[in-house]
Write a protein that binds this DNA or RNA. Structure first.
Length: 432
RNA sequence: GGAGAGGUGGCUGAGUGGUCGAAAGCGACGGUUUGCUAAACCGUUGUACGUGUCACAGCGUACCGGGGGUUCGAAUCCCCCCCUCUCCGCCA
């Protein structure tokens, strides 16, 4: 959520931002509505407070008044005021709800250096690392490898849970665990606190992070007869962890390495053909989440750091990748800036393509405002909203996919990347 | 899932209808004293919004787990929900 004061004071800039963000004309119109609503709201709030002030005055006077006649006069006035405040207060609340509702439609502001554009075509490649391997034998994609090596079972997943689910078996299970271990160990060295989070969260937390728990657009599964949803990412639980808290400035930055399962309905993604592990309903992910002081300098620096760590993780795995600076229209609601890493996937497309494996976002105070996460800046009075950032360390499924396809050998086995061997206990994946 | 107890300011803890944004203690901060440290003493010590100011101050409103209700008036009474603790049941 944006700061309502900022929206009112910079309505034109906010509108332009909405256009750049590719959000629909009705949302742009919301900005004007918010400006109008806000001045009404202020006027009515003043009225309500004035009545309340008089109510308090009367109530106190009533308590002190000994004379029965005067006392009943005061009681009568109190009753009158009570009736009076009801209607005005209800109007105030209506306005507040409407304002909040419209405010919550607005996307975050955008980093001035982020490319401006409406679709993902405007995303900019800002770095390429490594060279895709040239194979001197016909390659398989990870689905074929998974089947041949008996390490990924889509048929079993389909039978038990439906399309988009799978079993990881044998060395596939070990490889998944090894990648988790590798990422967590790496992050602990970087000063992150390792955390295993709940896989379900309250809908209010989902909303605070910027997810829509309900409706046709929803990306998450909700649990019937509860206000819980299966999380789409540990960003939800790690961001919610400090909801409604005031942190001490010395605690910041606060860095978590969260391990969770992630569940996604992938509603609306049906048309986008993607086989195998690339788009699934459940996967495991090691997620970085950071809280910083509420300045663009602090979160901007942290954002670069998260990207650096993501890159080093993939460099460590020896997987070629490119880094994308995501354009305004493709940023999603909460992000102020976002970088994606796309790793080389030999089995994708005709002769291999880069495919998204991580994503890191600087959400500035957008999530913190809705989740009410603040801190006390040193040497200042009052509190400020923190900035929140998230980044994928390793999303299993996709990282697993990339390892299998890049490390396959002519004999159908798969070499285990050096860094994973201590966790795998072997250097080659073979059919058991 | 069942039975009971409880949720008050940074912490401990008082407060069962009015003078309570809330006693007291601790902690923290500022000051006095002191060769230094300690102790002692004095003072300050929540947040948000509004109003006001160059900026303070001041003033107003709200907040005693969350929401609703009773009342002229609620931390205090009633209802619902959430959470914590104890015991029982069940269970990895």
């Amino acid at each position: 959520m944006l700061d309502p004061k900022y929206v009112v004071a910079h309505a034109e800039a906010v509108k332009q931002n909405c256009v750049n963000r590719n959000v629909g004309a009705d949302v742009v119109a919301d900005v004007d509505a918010i400006v109008a609503l806000d001045s009404d709201r202020k006027a009515i709030q003043t009225q309500v407070e004035e009545i309340r002030r008089r109510q308090n005055e009367v109530a106190q006077a009533t308590g002190k008044e000994k004379d029965p006649g005067k006392r009943s006069e005061l009681v009568a006035e109190g009753k009158r005021l009570k009736e009076e405040v009801v209607a005005v207060d209800e109007r105030l609340r209506t306005l507040e709800v409407e304002m909040k509702q419209r405010l919550s439609q607005l996307p975050n502001l955008t980093h001035p250096d982020a490319p401006t554009g409406q679709t993902e075509d405007a995303n900019k490649v800002i770095k390429t690392w490594g060279t895709p391997r040239v194979f001197d034998f016909p390659t398989k994609d990870h689905v074929e490898l998974g089947k041949a090596l008996d390490i990924i079972d889509f048929e079993g997943g389909g039978k038990v849970s439906g399309q988009g689910f799978y079993f990881l078996k044998n060395d596939g299970a070990l490889l998944d665990l090894a990648l988790q271990q590798y990422a967590i160990h790496r992050l602990v060295k970087e000063g992150f606190r390792p955390v295993i989070t709940p896989d379900l969260a309250r809908n209010s937390i989902l909303e605070g992070i910027g997810f829509q728990p309900r409706g046709p657009e929803t990306q998450v599964y909700s649990v019937e007869n509860t206000d819980l949803s299966l999380i789409g990412t540990a960003e939800i639980t790690l961001g919610g962890l400090h909801a409604d808290e005031v942190l001490e400035a010395e605690q910041l930055p606060l860095k978590y390495a969260g391990l969770s399962h992630c569940f996604r309905t992938e509603a609306g993604a049906g048309g986008r053909a993607s086989k195998g592990l690339y788009r699934v309903h459940q996967f495991t992910k090691v997620e970085m989440f950071a809280y910083t002081e509420g300045t663009l300098e602090a979160s901007g620096a942290m954002h670069q750091d998260l990207l650096r760590i993501e890159e080093e993780i993939f460099q460590g795995l020896g997987l070629p990748y490119q880094v994308l600076d995501i354009c305004s229209g493709d940023l999603g609601g909460p992000a102020y800036r976002k970088f994606d890493i796309e790793a080389w996937m030999p089995g994708r497309g005709e002769a291999g393509e880069y495919g998204e494996v991580t994503s890191t976002s600087d959400c500035t105070d957008f999530q913190a405002r809705r989740l009410n996460i603040r801190y006390k800046p040193a040497g200042q009075k009052g509190t400020k909203f923190v900035h929140t950032l998230n980044g994928t360390a390793v999303a299993l499924s996709r990282a697993l996919l990339a390892v299998l396809e890049n490390y396959q050998e002519a004999d159908g086995t798969v070499l285990v990347p050096e860094v994973l061997r201590p966790f795998m206990g072997k250097d080659r994946i073979t059919r058991i």
